[in-house]
Design a protein around this nucleic acid. Structure first.
Length: 424
RNA sequence: GUGAGCGUGGCCAAGUAGGUUAAGGCGCCAGGUUGUGGCCCUGGAGAUCGAGGGUUCGAAUCCCUUCGCUCACCCCA
């Protein structure tokens, strides 16, 4: 085969569309129920937005962006995550002048140039929310609750919530130096990756999976022990507020996030298998980001959730959907005259807002099979006999019985269908 | 970027110490029911075995190269 979808991308085939629609509509419902409003931003942005927003030393910006120059010479980058774009929109449209907090949510594709593997793709989709202009920890608890309620609502029941606080620009540096100082003592026993991390990304030392590094991690200094007073009270209150939502959570001292902009609250929601690529949702607070992007100092917090990972879990748990059988009529025809009549009639049914289509130009038996395959609820059979008699056969595929009806009878049947079903 | 596994009709897949027409299942098409589905029965179409090169009288089966897929590492949703 000459062409196939590019590495790390995939087609959502008709049989999978139900998952996507279900997830997207539920996400909107849940977010809206908390007062969040949808926002859509362009799939590409000025490259510098991500460089400054996400951090030029992060893996995402360093080696995972799809960056290109357009014909005018501007450097653009396909959005690798949602937060930076939404922040840009918030500033661009002067939302900082609106009553705060401003609550937004999004559903959009993202792109990262990575080697694909289970649960990781180059083109993937995220459901995310952002709450701007509120530093009080009640909003942290709220954001976490949105993601939690959503996952519960779509039937993913066996998830767990881990939270941590990594402090702010005031206290985190102190923690990091304490952490690196501690790790210096073990430089002999560390795995090669950790030796590298010690230099490049000390916080990442904490989630090394190598067996020999575990004891070192266990007795390492914890970020929550280094929180400054404001950060600590934020942290304590968050836990109290979270308790009031009734959501069970666990403290995870090794939980850090990969993006530079996080401060204070960070959290992740994962299914039972504790692997980083299985994290369904992750988020946290980013109080310095808006300022970093040239806006006024504005607190913010949000999460990003991988829709592909959500669907993977929905499938894993065989979640049952409300499978509403719609009215769907196929018009089978025998003979040219009848064929024209089915074209005319099916068009009228469609104009009544219902699904209707003409059967393939084959034998009746084959047309009936096609109707079954298409999951049609009804078949109208028209042949020359019916044309001259003015009476068509209406067959109910779900019940297996059939009656004779006139053309008008069909249209009335379609019009009455909804009402009839509700009465049931 | 690193490592491992895999690549046979639309899908799943047998066949690999090389040998006449490359199993089977699903799906598709047709017929059994000259105008009726979902079950059943029968028949049919469809792959030259990811691609290129090499070894050989002869290769899906051996060698080389290459592309692709999958999983893991790194990192993230």
């Amino acid at each position: 085969m000459e062409f196939q979808a590019p590495r790390g991308t995939s087609d959502v085939l008709p049989e999978d569309q139900k998952y996507w629609r279900y997830i997207e509509s539920t996400a909107s419902q849940v977010a809206e129920s908390f007062g969040y409003r949808r926002i859509d931003t362009p799939v590409f942005e000025d490259t510098n937005l991500f460089v400054r927003g996400i951090g030029d030393s992060t893996d995402i910006v360093e080696k995972e962006t799809y960056t290109f120059k357009d014909r005018g010479g501007d450097s653009l980058t396909l959005r690798p995550e949602g937060t930076a774009s939404v922040c840009r929109a918030y500033l661009q449209h002067g939302m900082h002048n609106l009553p705060q907090p401003v609550r937004l949510f999004y559903l959009c594709p993202n792109f990262r140039y990575e080697r694909p593997q289970a649960g990781r793709f180059r083109a993937f989709h995220q459901f995310g929310i952002e709450a701007f202009g509120e530093s009080d920890p009640y909003i942290d608890a709220e954001v976490i609750e949105v993601s939690w309620r959503f996952l519960k609502k779509v039937g993913i029941d066996d998830i767990s919530l881990n939270i941590n606080s990594i402090g702010d620009s005031d206290c985190r540096p102190k923690y990091i130096s304490a952490l690196t100082a501690y790790y210096q003592n073990y430089s002999q026993t560390l795995c090669p990756d950790c030796v590298r991390r010690l230099d490049t990304n000390p916080l990442r030392l904490l989630d090394c999976k190598i067996e020999s590094c575990q004891p070192v991690i266990e007795s390492a200094p914890k970020s929550i022990e280094y929180l400054c007073l404001p950060c600590n009270s934020h942290w304590v209150q968050l836990q109290e507020y979270l308790s009031n939502t009734g959501i069970a959570f666990q403290l995870d001292n090794t939980l850090v996030r990969g993006l530079d902009y996080y401060s204070r609250t960070v959290y992740e929601i994962s299914p039972p298998t504790q692997k980083r690529t299985n994290v369904i949702a992750g988020g946290g607070r980013y109080d310095g980001l808006l300022e970093q992007l040239g806006g006024p100092s504005t607190p913010g917090i949000g999460f990003g959730m991988g829709i592909e990972r959500v669907i993977e879990n929905v499938k894993r748990l065989s979640v049952n959907f409300a499978d509403t059988p719609e009215l769907s009529i196929m018009f089978a025809h025998i003979g040219e005259k009848a064929k024209k009549e089915t074209i005319r009639l099916s068009s009228q049914v469609r104009q009544l807002g219902k699904e209707a289509f003409v059967g393939p130009s084959r034998g009746l038996r084959s047309q009936m099979r096609y109707a079954s395959h298409m999951n049609a609820s009804h078949v109208i059979i028209i042949g020359d006999d019916e044309i001259s008699a003015g009476l068509y056969t209406l067959r109910d595929l779900t019940k297996g019985d059939q009656t004779e009806v006139t053309a008008n009878g069909i249209l009335n049947f379609v019009k009455e269908y909804d009402r009839g079903r509700k009465v049931d």
